[in-house]
């Protein structure tokens, strides 16, 4: 009975905490108008207030990287049913590097590291995230379209972390074995699980826009 009450309490705290986190965090999808009249606008994805939730910040400062998995979809708006025109998926890895006392944002596109940005402070990190990522996912035909974006934010599991570390090092060889930090990380992760900070999924979509001209690329 006592265990049940404890579980209900933890569950309640988890749900409440999750709701709070989702209330602050948001992913925004914005359109940059085309320079050509009637041309397709370019979507930009912004992540806001990730560090506004102290738990995510603690996760980062505890040296547990956070993965942001984006899926951007371009939909053709039609009378009866909308049709998925194109979709693109990429990941961003957010880490705190205690050696350099800075945060890093690594963009991983199609399994390869394509860009890395750094931020010295939490405020700089927020600025970096809010500057956003512009994706040149453009309609190839004229018509009515809209974009949707899904962002899944997840603290990396130990195995994923190991994979990412090896990816960032350009190393696909066998791991050298768990270091002393691995145990501490596991303990921190068990607290994370209790606090419900496992994964958050956010979504946004744009208004429908009309494309009448496809400029040559």
């Amino acid at each position: 009975m006592r265990r049940t009450v404890l579980l209900i309490g933890i569950l309640g705290a988890t749900l409440t905490g999750g709701a709070q986190a989702q209330g602050r965090l948001q992913v925004g999808l914005f359109l940059t108008p085309s320079q050509t009249e009637g041309g397709p606008p370019t979507p930009r994805v912004r992540t806001s207030h990730l560090t506004g939730d102290s738990r995510w910040l603690e996760v980062l400062n505890d040296q547990i990287p956070v993965r942001l998995r984006f899926r951007l979809e371009l939909w053709r708006s039609r009378a009866l049913n909308d049709a998925l025109d194109r979709a693109f998926q990429w990941e961003a890895l957010l880490r705190y590097e205690p050696l350099f006392e800075q945060y890093s944002l690594t963009i991983i596109n199609r399994g390869r590291v394509t860009e890395e940005r750094r931020a010295a402070t939490v405020a700089d990190l927020d600025t970096l995230l809010q500057a956003g990522i512009q994706v040149l996912l453009l309609p190839r035909q004229t018509g009515n379209f809209y974009f949707t974006v899904t962002l899944t934010i997840t603290p990396l599991s130990d195995s994923e972390l190991s994979d990412y570390e090896r990816l960032l090092q350009g190393d696909q060889g066998p791991p050298t074995g768990a270091g002393s930090s691995s145990i501490g990380r596991r303990i921190r992760r068990s607290f994370l699980n209790l606090s419900g900070l496992r994964s958050i999924q956010l979504e946004d979509r744009t208004e429908t826009f009309n494309v009448t001209v496809i400029p040559p690329r």
Binding site: R86, W90, T114, A120, T121, T127, L128
Partner: peptide, 14 residues
């Protein structure tokens, strides 16, 4: 070290 956030937009071309 101590670099400010590079707030220019990251561009990805699928």
């Amino acid at each position: 070290r101590g670099v400010s956030a590079q707030d220019s937009v990251i561009v990805i071309d699928p």
